[in-house]
Design a protein around this nucleic acid. Structure first.
Length: 469
DNA sequence: TGAAATGTTGGGGCG
DNA sequence: ACGCCCCAACATTTC
């Protein structure tokens, strides 16, 4: 009779969990563990919205485990290795199993933990759960990494479809459970009560993740290509936070999309478009793995010389609070602040506005998203901001500057999205909703903080200065 | 996974 | 009826 520790991190699910599955098949007792190590030397610790999610997702995981005669052991400490060794000593476990994460610092930490545990004479195994393609397994013919999405995804598709998802294994309990901290001891929830909007918008946990996936495949998948750009409609999956915390994995998504399209997801316009978004998530992790400095530094070095605005505290605050005077931008920023999430079409728009029209460094936007998004993901956030800034891989040309009015007229023509998030503009007719300054009754909605045409010209002029570099 | 400027086309009004 | 112009609609180029 041997005992295994399964180290849960951002794989907060029981189904299609390779580490859990493997531990349960190799050992007679399984101890599920979550370690809270906020002081570990890993940059980009979860922001406030993410911590809220983790709290509720851990509660859901513990409850799901208890329904199966198991439970979650929670520990806190300064070092994952030290805490794991404590648990091993207390439980007599002979193996530790986990699923891989791909942020540079986390990979290094995990490599060190694995080596140390093996030196202790233990089994230490990591498994693939979060990605369809491991970043180090795919290179161009010249053996350098892909920098452009389309050829990357084409090469991925050669290696797919992925394996079928794993079932939930039996979870035999140990004779005696080790001590666990209560979840509340981790103090993940906000002290000031600001999370009503999150509670109304989300239900963290594996069972809600799977229910959301079901809803999406049934109701929105085949129309995805058409409606995904309309932020005022339920056209997108809203799976991003569930995916980020591993409440479900991309293999399960692939399987569900396959089932919903009679076995041919790439032959259906909607499903193919949706799976390509899963591909962007893969690509983001791939890029972060191969260029680990990109969360802080532009991939294209010449952009370090870009003439950003000198003094921008007030402008940044207006953007953060949804007070820029551009309805689509403000609707997005208010949706983010209130619900911890923003529709992707609008993320591109608000990012373009901050970087180009406000000339505020993209890192400021990335930091704000990091703290406020429930789906904040270092890889996706970094890729998204560098993509918009035009300084990363597969960069949008710098001159691609989104026009908030035009985007509104194209993707929110009836003003449903703006009306939902900007009550001041409730009385405006749809014809004026994206340019309230042209209408007499604007309530106390602010005037535009920058002139769109002039700021666009300034951004293009700034680009001229880094173009040659 | 832009936007604006510029170019082309074709139908309708009108002398 | 014919040619000319206008301009909206669409396509292409440029930033």
């Amino acid at each position: 009779m041997t005992t295994a520790i399964v180290w849960f991190r951002r794989d907060l699910r029981l189904a299609d969990n390779p580490a859990l599955h493997r531990a349960a098949s190799e050992h007679q007792r399984v101890i599920p563990v979550y370690l809270h190590t906020p002081k570990e030397e890993i940059p980009w610790q979860p922001g406030a919205a993410s911590r809220w999610w983790v709290h509720h997702s851990l509660a859901a995981l513990d409850s799901a485990l208890q329904q199966r005669g198991s439970r979650l052991i929670i520990r806190a400490g300064d070092s994952s290795l030290v805490t794991l060794r404590d648990l091993i000593r207390e439980t007599g476990a002979t193996g530790v199993y986990w699923n891989r994460l791909y942020e540079p610092a986390t990979l290094n930490r995990d490599r060190a933990v694995k080596a140390a545990l093996r030196a202790d004479g233990l089994i230490a195994e990591s498994h693939q759960a979060a990605l369809l393609i491991e970043p180090w397994t795919l290179l161009k013919a010249d053996e350098t990494p892909y920098q452009v999405f389309t050829p990357f995804w084409k090469a991925c598709l050669q290696k797919l479809p992925p394996a079928v998802p794993l079932p939930i294994p039996p979870l035999p309990a140990p004779d005696r459970w080790p001590y666990s901290l209560p979840l509340t001891a981790l103090e993940l929830l906000p002290r000031i009560h600001w999370d009503d909007g999150l509670t109304a918008a989300w239900q963290p946990g594996e069972s809600s993740a799977l229910a959301q996936l079901d809803w999406f495949c049934e109701s929105a998948l085949t129309g995805y290509a058409k409606w995904r750009d309309w932020p005022g409609r339920d056209g997108v999956s809203r799976l991003s936070p569930h995916l980020h915390f591993g409440e479900l994995g991309p293999r399960q998504i692939w399987a569900a999309a396959t089932e919903a399209t009679d076995g041919d997801p790439l032959g259906d316009k909607g499903a193919e478009t949706f799976l390509r978004e899963i591909g962007w998530r893969e690509f983001a992790h791939y890029v972060l793995y191969h260029w680990p400095h990109t969360p802080e530094q532009p991939l294209q070095e010449r952009f370090a010389a870009y003439p950003w605005r000198d003094e921008y505290a007030d402008l940044l605050r207006a953007w953060q609070r949804g007070q820029t005077g551009y309805p689509m931008v403000d609707a997005g920023m208010r949706q983010l602040w209130r619900t911890g999430w923003m529709h992707n079409r609008v993320r591109m728009l608000v990012a373009s506005f901050l970087i180009k029209n406000c000339r505020i460094p993209w890192q400021e936007g990335a930091r704000w998203f990091w703290d406020t998004l429930v789906d904040a993901d270092l890889a996706s956030n970094t890729l998204g901001w560098q993509w918009t800034a035009g300084c990363g891989t597969d960069a949008a040309p710098y001159f691609r500057i989104f026009n908030p009015i035009r985007q509104g007229e194209q993707f929110d023509p009836d003003g449903a999205y703006v009306h939902r998030w900007i009550p001041e503009l409730a009385k405006l007719p749809a014809s004026a909703i994206h340019q309230p300054w042209t209408h007499s009754t604007q309530g106390n909605y602010p005037a535009p903080v920058v002139d769109f045409a002039a700021s666009r010209a300034e951004a293009l002029a700034g680009y001229e200065r880094v173009k040659a570099g």
